[in-house]
Simulated assay, not measured.
Amino acid sequence: MEEIVEKTIKIPEAVGHISVVGEQDSNLRILEENFQVRIIARGNTLKILGKQQEAEAACQVLEELIAAAKRNKIFTRDDVLTAIKITRSLKSASPATDLPDVAATPMETISTFLGYIKPRTEGQRAMMEALNKNDIVFAVGPAGTGKTYLAVALAVAHLKENLVKKIVLARPAVEAGESLGFLPGDYKEKIDPYLKPLYDALEDMLPRDLLKRFLEQQIIEILPLAYMRGRTLNNAFVILDEAQNTTFMQMKMFLTRLGINSKSIITGDITQIDLPTKKDSGLVSSFYVLSGIEGIAFVKLTNRDVVRHPLVKDIIDAYERYDEKQNSKEK
């Protein structure tokens, strides 16, 4: 019979106790049910009793809850279940063959102005590892894999550590079934909804007053891709989001903006191309044009890296099966 071990985790004084354990210890009860452990809460100290592997997994999820609480995030039941699901998949799954071999890489943390963020999946860890070794990283994968959020976190960490002097976040303004012309306001007001996900990520990582100051001083710039033409970006961390909606020439223009002591992450999902012809995507063509160039890395995230609601992965799988059936009919 496997020995029962005891592990201890302390909730920092600055972190809200309820944010971690949940109302009436509801988060702890979820962990007990899913990991077959017993968790005893005494003040800010949590004791986890169970078999070695189960106790370690429960501790890992608790550390995620504490890290989120430091960012003033309150976990819902679905968030806790998602964290459990991810933890189990990381322990049981072997690294994907098309990802960099980072299985032996220790779990690192990303230091932002509002606390620490951890990569939560193999694909996210592969993004971090690739950026450590390369100046340009393409991170491609389905919705919900945290590509944009992690890219922004890495950019903020580089700014915080004075490794770069500014952050530039860009998105192509492609109409995804909606017409900009019929939206109210001037061009900036029309384009802001396309850039909102980037603002949302930044608000999790910088105090509001500091973010406002950085935006006013253009230490952080959030802009449509077209506004980058003609610029050279030195000492900058540059992110291109939704890159599947760039054309061949737009992708070339973006990549050639990179200056001295700069890094870039390009994120996108080739299943969500909104261009009239999918083969025109600058993200798709980049695989063929840039493959094999030293200093450029491609990281593929998969459905296993989805970190949103547990149903998101099932939804992605269902759409992929549907697309495969449609493609086979067309053939």
Score class of each variant (00 low, 15 high):
K190V: 04
N27Q: 10
Q124K: 07
M1K: 05
Q250E: 15
L223F: 05
E122V: 00
K190C: 09
E32P: 03
E129V: 07
T302R: 05
K329S: 06
F298C: 07
M205N: 01
E203L: 03
I4F: 05
K165I: 13
E175P: 01
L311D: 08
E33K: 13
M205K: 07
F138V: 09
D314T: 09
Q217F: 13
Q60C: 10
S262H: 11
S328Y: 05
Q250G: 03
D204W: 00
R125Q: 06
L62M: 14
V299S: 06
T82A: 11
K133E: 14
I110K: 02
A297V: 04
M127I: 15
Y187G: 04
E242K: 03
L46K: 02
Q52P: 07
Q53W: 06
T45G: 08
E216R: 15
F214Y: 15
S281M: 03
N303I: 12
R208L: 14
I84W: 03
M107L: 14
A96E: 10
T271I: 02
P12E: 06
A58D: 08
E294S: 09
T271D: 05
L31T: 10
I265P: 08
F287P: 01
T105L: 12
T267C: 08
K252G: 01
E3L: 06
I239V: 09
F248P: 02
R38T: 15
A170I: 12
V299L: 06
A155E: 13
D79T: 01
I293L: 14
D209E: 15
N44W: 00
T246N: 02
A176K: 01
E320L: 11
T97S: 10
L159F: 12
R257I: 03
S111D: 13
K331V: 07
M1G: 04
D79C: 06
N235M: 06
K147P: 04
G50H: 08
L163G: 12
L114A: 02
R77L: 14
K263E: 06
L99N: 13
F248Q: 12
I18H: 02
L180F: 15
K300F: 08
E178D: 15
H309M: 12
E23H: 09
P12V: 03
R88W: 11
K51D: 08
E221H: 11
D200S: 03
G268Y: 05
G16W: 00
I265D: 09
L49D: 13
N72E: 00
I219E: 13
S19V: 00
V137Q: 07
L223P: 07
V140C: 05
G16D: 03
G295P: 09
L258D: 00
K160D: 11
K300L: 10
C59I: 01
E189K: 14
I74G: 00
E63R: 13
E64C: 07
T105S: 13
A83R: 12
E2W: 01
I296P: 05
R71G: 02
K118H: 10
E216P: 04
L215W: 11
F138G: 01
L198Q: 12
G141E: 02
E56S: 11
K85L: 15
E330R: 11
A176C: 09
T246L: 12
V238K: 14
L81W: 09
M128T: 10
R42Q: 14
L206M: 15
K279C: 03
Y227A: 12
A14N: 06
I84C: 09
V289M: 10
T148L: 02
T256M: 10
S179K: 00
V299A: 05
Q52Y: 14
L114Q: 07
D204K: 09
A139F: 09
